[in-house]
Design a protein around this nucleic acid. Structure first.
Lengths: 232, 232
DNA sequence: GGTTGTGAACAAATTCACAGCG
DNA sequence: CGCTGTGAATTTGTTCACAACC
């Protein structure tokens, strides 16, 4: 039985841990052995107190007066995020976006091998894209089973996204990353994260519009404004 | 002089408005003239009180006992988000992702025409992708000027993302959507939003790992768990 | 009657500030 | 002395619950 003292980590913190992790990897690669919350905060573009609080949810892995051991923190953080093992992924939708995602090396590198790319278009079936072969949507249950897939990525048009989600869940997938501009309904216990590219631009648009309304139209100097939708 | 009673809308609300807007468009297309906060909440996957509070930041555009006029709400919301005019976009990086984004019709449709795709690779220059022509990175200042571009999308490898951001800002861009897995540093007043695909998967991984640790490994039934990273 | 709009209660997240420890 | 870890204070976001109004 897998059992540990499982703290519940706040959502906001969970969303930041992968960012710290990437930075820690980089530091490790540069041969940096130790890092302070101050430095890590600077690299992550956040407040140092926030870093310390976030890391404290993992346990007390720092050393007072010194900082955090980079390697050890990478290890603990990876473990907590479940990255000690690969999570094979299936991408549904072999259009532009699906293909680009399948070709994106970052998935593979960070432990999310794209084992299958799935589409309804029979003419695409069999084609090799990145590490993945295109298979037919109807084979989903079998593929999920055989590939040990628990995470699905939806890269289809919005019109079919809900149906695809249903089929993914039916096939046994319990986590979905949705690129379709649609709000998905899934059973309780299934995780969904959404990436809506146009929504991101619309959010930027809001702050752009405010800028121009505030500063008087045709000017591009930056008048020391306050924080905007920035995550810099 | 552009001047209005400019309320400051909370960030969390700004991030949801585009979602409501898309739903309202769909409703309008279906010929629905009126919608209640309850119904809109259901479609957006949120709480009805939240919808009302969010919409109240736009002004009092509902009718008690009736609901919200769909067309009118679309109009007001678009105006507030700055969507009454197009925001031409330049995408930097003509790799897989950059090309997929340039081909994505949703940008154009929602008022973000991709006017240029920019790359350092001279062999790509001149190629037509979607509505955009590939141009050389060195032409950025000129392109931004001529195209009236204020929003840039970074679809390059992480290693050059900061430099690209600097050049975008230098060229006059004031909002950046960053797909590179890097924390960007930009001057105050420049908006940045980040989409990190691997980070999204790592967040899902956390909840997946928790699931398997909790339920005992090889099982795929859903034991009525509590809410997870879901935005369904 | 039905639904909005909003103060007030509550919850989550962030930041402060400092005791505790290496 | 320096930096972590964390209670306490503050800010931001969510939800409740109901008066106001059509």
């Amino acid at each position: 039985m897998v059992e540990r003292g499982r703290r519940r980590i706040p959502e906001a913190t969970v969303a930041r841990l992968p960012v710290y992790l990437r930075i820690l990897y980089d530091l490790a690669t540069e041969g940096v052995a130790n890092v302070s919350s101050e430095r890590l905060a600077e690299l992550a573009g956040v407040n140092a107190a926030k870093v310390r609080k976030d890391l404290s949810y993992l346990g007390s892995y720092g050393t007072r007066g010194v900082g955090y051991d980079v390697e050890y923190l990478v290890y603990q953080m990876s473990r907590e995020l479940g990255l000690h093992r690969p999570w094979p992924v299936v991408i549904v939708g072999a259009g532009n976006l699906g293909q680009a995602l399948a070709n994106y090396a970052g998935f593979q590198e960070r432990g999310f091998p794209v084992v299958y790319l799935v589409d309804v278009d029979a003419t695409k079936v069999g084609v090799q894209i990145g590490q993945a072969t295109v298979r037919h949507l109807d084979d989903l249950p079998q593929l999920v089973q055989e590939g040990g897939v628990t995470i699905g990525v939806i890269a289809t048009p919005g019109s079919v996204a809900q149906e695809v989600a249903d089929r993914l869940v039916q096939a046994g997938v319990t986590a979905i990353l949705n690129f379709a501009p649609v709000v998905l309904t899934v059973p309780r216990g299934v995780s969904v994260r959404k990436v809506d590219l146009a929504v991101e631009l619309q959010i930027l648009s809001y702050y752009e519009q405010r800028r121009s309304a505030a500063a008087g139209p045709p000017l591009q100097a930056v008048p020391a404004g306050s924080r905007r939708g920035a995550s810099a």
